[in-house]
Design a protein around this nucleic acid. Structure first.
Length: 580
DNA sequence: CAGCTATGTCATAGT
DNA sequence: GTACTATGACATAGC
């Protein structure tokens, strides 16, 4: 139902107050601007320039007894009511903030699918209020709305709409799209009711829907509009069968105590339905979601990160900063490249390394007595993933405080403290070159070095273990640094995604606000049109007994409420069936 | 002393 | 097959 209403408005180039940019998915407001607008609340609604352009009048034919509407010619036309769509159009123009350049690129029928059709307690609803505009959306529908809206955006991107102005103003009067404005012949509706002047009078920017001016319009004067004529043959089925406007605009259950006339006694048509509180509600809800994500999920993520492998997300806790991330890779490559550049000979390693740690089982007690050995700290330095720049100058510091020297004298302990276990082992085994060389020399040079000395099997085994462990130590350092970098990058990604999500939520709020504005304007239009309808006695129609109905082809019908409710129920069933 | 971090080491898979 | 790298898992020192 909502769909067709909007569809009609759409066809008639009725700008509902939302500019194209509102629906342009690619249109991204700056976040701070969005925030500001969210605070501003109501915006730009009262500066809409009306446009005086040619408009089409439409006639409505409704069978007052049966509720059926049809375009049949009524002799004499006495039971017809001239209902000027011009009123509608001008009203809409008057409420259009975007003027002639406003385009509605999305298929409005699809757009309205994003509008939830919600019902409201009858007592809360004005009889004239359209369900389109009623109530607050269920929060559970919001996501669906959003998805729908997104799909609209996609459609919009594909579909360059014909200017709705063309549709509206270029349609010939006999165009079925534009003239299905009919009343049933039996309907006792005064055909002389003309809302043309009234509409003109009500089209000022700050028009009042029920101003005394408007209400005092001559009702029985000769119409300046074409009297209701039977619309062309397409009307009966196409206009009636497609959409029940009453269901669209009226709640299924009418408040029986509500005004029976659509006159000035109508309460505030927008009631509490359109107040900013609704938007605030949505905004708050979205923001709550966002907040929830930020606080709960982010902390959750942080928890996970923090608990994983004992690594902290916080970069300040990381021994390596991000800026040093490239250093690790470059450190390994530079060290290897510099080492390989000096490679001059090639040796084939004799025998497998054999990761037996037997050599390691050399008791340190055997080593502890070894003193006086001064390793060449400055010649070869191990890699440091903490600071690659110190690659070639760091002494062995990794086990400072690890006292593996046992019963050494304090002086010896001081110098020996900086030796690794492998250093001690090497010293104990009288290895004639430094562990740096053992670890960092390219394999060719390493083998060449080994060949220069007569080494026992135990020595060779220890040397290979030292080389293996040394290389693995560097590898472990690099590995850990990479892991930290990966975690930091993931953390950044999470933050980026959180920002994206927050931005999308803000945009969603904007879209929803636009939708609400559109619904508000549609509702106003409905009330205005209905409230100006007069029967043959010049009396307004009771919203509890009659309703307007839009057909899919653009026609507007005045039908009895009972029929409207029937069709409304029928329309409600359809989507459910479709879902099945 | 428990918990955490940093680091070394081993085993293993992959290059 | 060797040499090397990457990485998970474990051990240990130190805070």
């Amino acid at each position: 139902q909502d769909i067709d209403l909007i569809d009609i408005l759409w066809r008639q180039d009725i700008d509902l107050g939302a500019g194209r940019e509102i629906f342009d998915y690619s249109h991204r407001q700056k976040e701070q601007d969005v925030d500001k607008e969210l605070q501003d609340g109501v915006e730009q609604e009262d500066t809409w320039p009306g446009e005086g352009e040619e408009v089409l009048a439409r006639n409505l034919l409704v069978d007052g007894e049966t509720g059926e509407s049809f375009p049949a010619q009524v002799p004499g036309g006495e039971n017809q009511t001239a209902l000027s769509l011009e009123l509608c159009l001008r009203l809409l123009e008057a409420t259009c903030p975007f003027g002639e350049n406003a385009e509605f690129p999305a298929d409005i029928s699809s757009l309205t699918e994003a509008v939830p059709s919600e019902s409201e307690p009858p007592g809360l609803q004005n009889n004239l209020l359209s369900p389109l505009l009623t109530g607050t959306e269920s929060p559970f529908d919001l996501e669906q709305q959003w998805q729908d809206l997104m799909s609209i955006m996609e459609m919009q991107a594909m579909e360059v709409n014909t200017s709705t102005n063309e549709i509206l103003y270029n349609n010939p009067p006999g165009d079925p799209l534009s003239t299905n404005y009919s009343l049933a012949p039996n309907t006792p509706i005064n055909q002389n009711v003309s809302l043309h002047q009234a509409s003109l009078g009500g089209c000022s920017q700050d028009f009042s829907l029920f101003s005394p001016e408007v209400e005092s319009l001559p009702v029985a004067s000769s119409s300046t509009l074409p009297p209701l004529v039977p619309s062309n043959s397409t009307s009966l089925n196409s206009t009636f069968g497609s959409t029940n406007l009453s269901g669209l605009f009226f709640p299924p259950q009418l408040n029986g105590t509500a005004n029976d006339t659509a006159g000035p006694e109508l309460p505030d048509p927008l009631g509490g339905l359109l107040d900013e509180a609704m938007l605030d509600e949505i905004s708050l809800m979205d923001l709550a979601i966002e907040e929830g994500f930020n606080s709960v999920q982010a902390s959750q993520l942080k928890e996970e990160f923090d608990s994983d492998s004992g690594l902290s997300l916080d970069s300040s806790h990381s021994p390596s900063s991000l800026s040093s991330s490239e250093g690790s890779s470059s450190s390994s490559s530079s060290s290897s490249s510099s080492a390989s550049s000096s490679a001059s000979s090639s040796f084939s390693e004799e025998g497998a390394v054999g990761y037996s740690s037997d050599s390691e089982t050399l008791d340190l007690e055997e080593v502890e007595g070894a003193v006086g050995y001064q390793p060449e700290y400055s010649k070869f330095c191990r890699m440091s993933y903490q600071d690659p720049s110190q690659l070639s100058c760091l002494p062995y510091l990794e086990h400072v405080g690890h006292n593996h020297t046992y019963n050494m004298a304090p002086s010896a302990l001081d110098s020996d403290k900086q030796m690794s276990r492998d250093e001690h082992r090497a010293r104990a085994m009288k290895i004639p070159f430094t562990n740096d060389k053992i670890i960092n020399l390219p394999v060719e040079e390493f083998n060449e070095l080994l060949s220069k000395y007569q080494l026992s099997e135990a020595q060779l085994s220890l040397i290979r273990d030292i080389r293996r462990r040394g290389k693995n130590k560097m590898a472990a350092q690099n590995c850990r640094k990479r892991k930290l970098d990966t975690i930091l990058n993931l953390k950044r990604d999470v933050e980026d995604l959180q920002r994206d999500k927050a931005r999308l939520l803000r945009e969603k709020v904007e879209f929803l606000r636009s939708l609400r504005q559109m619904k508000q304007k549609v509702q106003s239009l409905y009330q205005e049109v209905f409230g100006r309808l007069r029967d043959e006695n010049g009396q307004p129609y009771s919203p509890s007994q009659y309703a307007l109905q839009y057909a899919g082809d653009g026609s507007v019908l005045l039908i009895p409420r009972t029929l409207a409710d029937q069709q409304a129920r029928r329309q409600e069933r359809k989507p459910k069936d479709r879902r099945k």
